[in-house]
Write a protein that binds this DNA or RNA. Structure first.
Lengths: 342, 342
DNA sequence: CAATCCTTTGGTAGCGCTGTCAATATCAGT
DNA sequence: ACTGATATTGACAGCGCTACCAAAGGATTG
C-alpha cells in the first residue's frame, strides 16, 4: 500500500457510478458524451452526481485523456486598458463553457513569450490566443508544429500561424491622419509611447499618410520606449512643441497620450481644436466625454477577445472558419478635438 | 493494451532518469527537493533534463501529489483599473515561482463567487485570493473548512476567514471628507456608481464624517447601481447639481467619476476648485496631471496584490504571518481641485 | 430463424508522476 | 570492529479518470 487510504467521504466517479448502479466508465461517458447513454441511465447518473455533489478531478481527466480544457492566453500587459477589454471579451465568451483560461503576461518581451509558450504547450491546452504577429522564429515553429488551434489577436498580417483576428494598425493610423488632413490640418505631429510593434505600425501609417500628402517632417515625431501614461502624454506633447512649435495638430499613439496632451494644452491655455487638434487611438470610454470631446480611432477590442475565444472553441469542435484571418476594422470617431480648421 | 503506445520521442521523467542513470523517483526528487540528492546525481539529472528538454506533466504531478501549484484568484471585474493594478501585483509576485494563477471573474455576484469557489477548491489549489469580505454564508463555511491558505483582499474587517490585506474604505472616505472640511468646504456632495460593498462603505464614511460635523444632508447623495465610467461621472454630477444646486464640493466614489465630474464642470464653465471642489478615490495615474490636478485618496493596489500573493506563498511554506490582517492604509493626495476655499 | 447491423454497456490497462516505506551507503562514536 | 544514526536511493503501488476493445442487447433483414 503505497498510499494512505482514500478518505471514505471523497466523491469520485466510482461513487457516482455505484449510486447510479452503472459502471464507472458509463458514468464517465455521461460527462464526456451524454448522448451515447440511454435516457434511463443518463438520468440515473445525473441525479447520482447531483446528490453526491460530484466534482470531476481535472488532473485525472487531463492525465487520462491527454488534454486539458484550458485555453492559454498570452498578452503583453495587464495594466493597459486595451488588454483588459480584450480579456473581458475572452472571459465572457468562455463563461459557461467547460474551458478555462490560463493567462500569462509576456511584458512585451518575445523571449518571455517563447518561454511561456513552451510551458503552455507542454500542458496540452485546448487552444492558444497570442498577441500580435511578432513572435520569435523559434516560437513560430513551435506553434506551427502543434496540434491545437491558435489565434493571433490585435493585428492582422499576411501569414497566420493558424487563425488571426484584429485589424491593420497601419491603415487605422492612416485613416486618423486622413481625417485631420481633410479637416484642413497640415502640420501634424505624432506622439508614441512604449513603441511596441503595433504602435510602430501606427507610426508607419502616420508617415505614409503624411508622405503621400508631401507633408512628412521627422521633427514632428516624438516617441519613447517608456510605458504609456496620461502624464507621459503631457510630457511628450511638451517635447513636441519644443521641437516643432508650429504644429497645428497631434496624432497620439493611444488615448492616454491624447488625454495627457489635452491637459497640457489646458495648462498652456491653448484652445483645442482652434490652436491644437488632437486625435487619439483606441477610443477608450473617456474620449467621448472629455472637454472638448476627443476624436479617436475606435478599435473593437471586446469583440476581438470574444471572437478569438469563439474561434478557438469552434476550431476544436471541428468547425474551422472558412476564412482564417478576420479583419475587425476600425472607425474614426470624429469629435470636437479635430473640428475643421478655421 | 488499453492505449495506443506512447510516442517514442516523448520525454517523460523516465527518459530523464534513464539518461541520468538513476531511478525515476530520484529524478522526481530533483524537481521536488533537490537538496535531498547527492551533488553528483543532482548534476547528472539536471543535465539530462536540459539535454532532453524535459517539461514535467503537471496533470500527472497534480494527480499523484493530490495538489496543484495553482493559486485561485477571484475578482469582481476585469475592466476596473483598480483590479488590473491588483492583478499586476499578484502576477509580479508569482513571476519566477512555480505557482500559476487561475483567475475568475465573479461579476460582482456573490452567488457566482460561491459557484467559482467550489470549482476552484475541487482542484486543490495551493491558495486562494478572494475579493472583499462579503461572501455568502455558504462560501464562508466552504472556505473555513478548506486546508489551503486564503487571503481576502481590498478590505479589512473583524473576522478574517484566514488572512486579510486591504484598508478601511470607511476611514479612507472619512479622511477625504475631513480634508474637504479642513479646507473650508461645508456643502459636500457624494457620487457613487456600482455601489458594491466597498463603495457602500465609502458612502458610510462620508455620512459619518458629515454627520459628525452636523452637515449631513441626504439630498447631497447621488448613487446608482450602473457600472462606473467617466461619462457616468458627468451624468451623476449633473444629477447632483439639479438636486442640490448649492453644493461647494463633491466627493466621488472613484476617480473615473471624479474625472467625469471635472469634465462636466468644464462644460458648465464652473471653475475648479473655486466654484466646485472635487475629490476622487484610488488615485489613478491621471489624477495628478489633470487640469486642475485632482485630489484623491490613494490606495495601495499594486502592493495589495503583490503582498497577498506573497502571503499565500509564505503560508504554504509554513511561515504564517504573525498578524493575519494587514492594513495597507491610504493617503489623501491633496491637490489643486480641493485647494482652500476663499 | 439465422445473419447482420447498430446501440449501449462493461473490462482492462494504463496516463506520468509521487507518497510511503524499505534498503543501502556513509559516517561518527565507542 | 561494531552499533546506531544519518544521508541517499529505489521498489511499489496507486492518484481518478478515460481510450480502446469486446461483448451484450435489440432491431432489421432475407
Amino acid at each position: 500500500m503505497g498510499r494512505k487510504c482514500a478518505k471514505p467521504d471523497k466523491i469520485r466517479l466510482t461513487e457516482v457510478a455505484k449510486l447510479a448502479g452503472v459502471s464507472p466508465i458509463t458514468a464517465s461517458r455521461f460527462f464526456r458524451n451524454p448522448d451515447a447513454l440511454s435516457v434511463g441511465k443518463r438520468a440515473r447518473v445525473e441525479s447520482a452526481a447531483n446528490e453526491l455533489g460530484y466534482v470531476p478531478n481535472l488532473a485525472a481527466r487531463a492525465l487520462a485523456s491527454q488534454r486539458t480544457e484550458v485555453i492559454g492566453v498570452l498578452v503583453p500587459s495587464l495594466t493597459n486598458n486595451v488588454f483588459s477589454d480584450v480579456l473581458r471579451g475572452i472571459y465572457d465568451a468562455l463563461d459557461g463553457s467547460p474551458y478555462s483560461i490560463q493567462l500569462a503576461n509576456t511584458r512585451y518581451s518575445i523571449f518571455q513569450e517563447e518561454k511561456l509558450l513552451r510551458l503552455f504547450l507542454a500542458q496540452k491546452p485546448t487552444g492558444l490566443i497570442v498577441t500580435g504577429i511578432n513572435q520569435t522564429a523559434e516560437s513560430r515553429s513551435i506553434m506551427e508544429s502543434v496540434a491545437c488551434p491558435i489565434v493571433q489577436i490585435m493585428e492582422i498580417g499576411p501569414s497566420p500561424i493558424d487563425m488571426m483576428i484584429g485589424f491593420s494598425h497601419y491603415e487605422a493610423a492612416k485613416a486618423g491622419i486622413s481625417h485631420l488632413l481633410e479637416q484642413g490640418y497640415r502640420r501634424i505631429g505624432f506622439l508614441g509611447a512604449r513603441m511596441d510593434p503595433r504602435v510602430q505600425r501606427r507610426l508607419e501609417g502616420y508617415q505614409a499618410a503624411m508622405s503621400d500628402a508631401a507633408l512628412f517632417d521627422p521633427r514632428r515625431v516624438v516617441t519613447t520606449a517608456t510605458p504609456s501614461s496620461v502624464t507621459l502624454g503631457g510630457t511628450l506633447f511638451a517635447d513636441l512643441l519644443a521641437k516643432a512649435p508650429d504644429i497645428e495638430a497631434v496624432f497620439c499613439g493611444n488615448d492616454d497620450i491624447a488625454l495627457g496632451a489635452l491637459f497640457e494644452c489646458q495648462r498652456r491655455h491653448m484652445s483645442v481644436p482652434e490652436q491644437m487638434a488632437i486625435v487619439g487611438f483606441n477610443d477608450l470610454e473617456f474620449m467621448s466625454c472629455a472637454v472638448p470631446t476627443l476624436t479617436s480611432v475606435r478599435t473593437n477590442r471586446y469583440e476581438m477577445g470574444r471572437d478569438a475565444a469563439m474561434m478557438v472553441i469552434e476550431a476544436v469542435e471541428g468547425r474551422r472558419p472558412e476564412q482564417p484571418v478576420v479583419d475587425l476594422g476600425f472607425s474614426v470617431m470624429k469629435r470636437q478635438s479635430s473640428a475643421r480648421r478655421n
